[in-house]
Design a protein around this nucleic acid. Structure first.
Lengths: 222, 222
DNA sequence: CAGCATCCCGATTGATACTG
DNA sequence: CAGTATCAATCGGGATGCTG
């Protein structure tokens, strides 16, 4: 562990990969983009990561100034990990990667999806042109985490926390909701199957789907 | 090799890392962003990559539809590798990573820099606001590769090939030129040391540096 | 249980030698 | 030149143990 391996590349991209190019590193960053998380939460949101790798990545990211330990407010008295301001600036990178990769023919949209990933996907795939004149407020309950979504003035705001006056409260697992808003699965099907629950205006879910657009799949001919 | 390891993540970012997250993969892509290259050229531009890893990455990238083999025009009759249209769309990712990482305190700007990296850095760090009213044409000879740079109408064009009517032809190793345009090293020093050679208007180099701006280093306090 | 540290094993990487 | 083959070193994944 004396000398960490490096690309020794003066190019910013090469150095970036020294910092966040190790396996799992950027996914850890992604999971922290919406705010601090505890160790155990990271483990459940990143199924497949081993506990030692997670610990090591957190140590490395902290040493690089990307992540910092954060003591949660009084009642819990536990520690959490959060991105530094600079670490937060990785969101454009995460989004650019996501926007690029959803075009992949090999992309499996039915795989596991974390609540954070779903919320970030809204930011990534929101199309202002489709949102002209749309005003909507949602509260999303994804795996017991609560998020607020506000569409107004051609912008989308999606973050942790409760939404005031939501026109719909949607409860689902992230992948189930993705199947509806991205995969074109009829909401009625998902509701009937118990995969999605909507309290409030059910029609509002279609309005959410209508402001999102995925780039076209790459044609096999390349 | 039966089952390639995967993050099994429906999030686009996770899938992106399945595609280009292996070690060296994104640097291979970076080196191909300005056009096809031969195997040996990739090896010299990526010092430190082993030949077996390069071969494996090329095979994987080709299987994913990111890279394709390209037969060079008649006289050479050799093979080269080039990005598919979709692979070319990774340029925003590469740039976003670069723009983020140059703020790192750990960034070593004196390390190796490939010609491609330098040209891409011009695209990444060009600031249109600094280029109002600027018109300039350069030809860059970096490690025997020839590039054209045109600044006009608040835009920068940088690509392979010769430049018509350049006001300066600059010959240097990429890291030496970077020391001048990014590192603030006086051009006269670099010329005197034999690190940079300018044919044409020497003052034009300062005009190139003047349209580039690096984001500020992260403060240690985070 | 949170947050690691240890140990083992298979997979990946890196350096080098070799071949068409 | 353009890879392939080989082998040692390292890394990642999984199980487990330890410490509050």
């Amino acid at each position: 562990m004396a000398t960490k391996r490096s690309y020794n590349d003066a190019c910013g991209t090469g150095h970036a990969l020294d910092l966040v190019g190790e396996r799992w590193a950027l996914l850890v960053v992604r999971e922290l983009l919406l705010g601090p998380k505890r160790y155990g939460q990271l483990r459940t949101d990143l199924p497949g990561i081993s506990t030692n790798v997670l610990a090591q990545r957190l140590t490395e990211l902290e040493a690089s100034g990307i992540v910092r330990k954060h003591r949660l407010p009084a009642p819990t008295a536990a520690e959490a990990y959060e991105l530094t301001d600079w670490g937060l600036e990785l969101e454009p990178v995460v989004r650019a990667l996501g926007r690029w990769a959803v075009r992949s023919p090999a992309h499996d949209r039915t795989a596991h999806l974390s609540p954070t990933s779903f919320i970030l996907s809204l930011r990534t795939n929101f199309d202002p042109d489709l949102a002209r004149g749309v005003h909507a407020r949602y509260e999303l309950h994804l795996n017991d985490e609560v998020f607020q979504v506000l569409i107004a003035d051609g912008t989308l705001h999606a973050a942790r926390g409760h939404q005031q006056q939501p026109e719909a409260v949607i409860t689902a697992r992230p992948s189930a909701l993705a199947g509806v808003v991205y995969g074109g699965r009829p909401l009625a099907d998902a509701v009937a199957a118990g995969d999605v629950r909507v309290e409030g205006d059910p029609g509002s879910v279609a309005r959410l789907a209508a402001v999102l657009s995925l780039p076209p799949l790459v044609t096999p001919a390349g």
